[in-house]
Write a protein that binds this DNA or RNA. Structure first.
Lengths: 108, 108
DNA sequence: CAATTCTATGGCATAATTGCCATATAGGCA
DNA sequence: TGCCTATATGGCAATTATGCCATAGAATTG
C-alpha cells in the first residue's frame, strides 16, 4: 500500500485550486457548451476584464482550458471532460447530506 | 440556456476549495481505503495534530468526509465516491497536455 | 480525583488569493 | 501612421488560507 508521492498531490491541488472560485466555475460551465472569447466571458461574469483575464490564466495554467487566437480576440475552450460528471456526483452527495441533516432535525 | 444560480457555483467552489490542499488530498486518498483516526492521519501527513484537525474540519464542513467517535478517538471516513474517477480523468488530461507540450518542443 | 491520551479551538504571524486600476501589447482599420 | 478594440500584466490593498503554539475538553485509567 505505497502512498503516491507528494508531487502528485500538489499537481492535483493545483487543479482543485483552479476550480475553487465561483466565477471560474461559472465560466467553465459556459465553456462546456461552446468556446467563448474573453469579452463574452467578461459579460457573463460581470467583473473587470482584467480580473476575468487573470481567472482564465489560472484555468489555462492548470491545464483545464486552452485558448486560440483569432484576429484580436482570444477564444477559450474547455479541455477537460470530467467536470460535468464530477459535479453531478458531488451534488448528489451534498443533497443526500441535506436530507440526513433534516432527518436528524426531525428527530428521526 | 439558462445559467444556474450563483449560489450553485459557490457551493461547488466550497467543495473545490476543500480539495485544494496537498495534505487534504493525501488524507482523502488514504481514507478511500479505510477509515482512520486523527492520530493515524497526523502520522500520515507529518504536520502538527492541530493542523490536521483543522484540515479535517474543512473536509467535514464541505461534506466530503464524516466522522465517528469511538472512545477517545475519532474516526474519519470518506463520504464521496467520485474522487478516484475524477483524478484519473484529470491526470489523463494533464498527461496528454505534457505530451503535446513535448511535441511542440521537438518542433513536431 | 489526578494523570494521561486524543482531539478541537483560539490566537497569531506569514503566505496566498482576489479584484480593481492603470498600463502595455497587439490586431484591425481608416 | 494614428486610433480603436480586445486582451494581458504590474501593482497594490483587502481578504482569506495556512501552520504552529498554547490550551481546552472529553474519555480512560489508576
Amino acid at each position: 500500500m505505497e502512498r503516491e508521492p507528494r508531487q502528485l498531490y500538489e499537481a492535483r491541488a493545483k487543479v482543485a485550486k483552479a476550480l475553487a472560485h465561483p466565477s471560474r466555475l461559472l465560466m467553465l460551465d459556459a465553456l462546456a457548451e461552446k468556446e467563448m472569447c474573453v469579452c463574452d466571458l467578461t459579460d457573463l461574469v460581470g467583473a473587470d476584464q482584467s480580473t476575468v483575464s487573470k481567472h482564465l490564466a489560472v484555468l489555462k495554467n492548470a491545464g483545464i482550458v486552452a485558448d486560440r487566437k483569432e484576429g484580436v480576440m482570444i477564444y477559450y475552450r474547455l479541455k477537460v471532460g470530467c467536470l460535468r460528471g464530477f459535479w453531478n456526483c458531488i451534488e448528489g452527495v451534498l443533497k443526500q447530506n441535506l436530507k440526513e441533516q433534516q432527518a436528524v432535525m426531525n428527530n428521526l
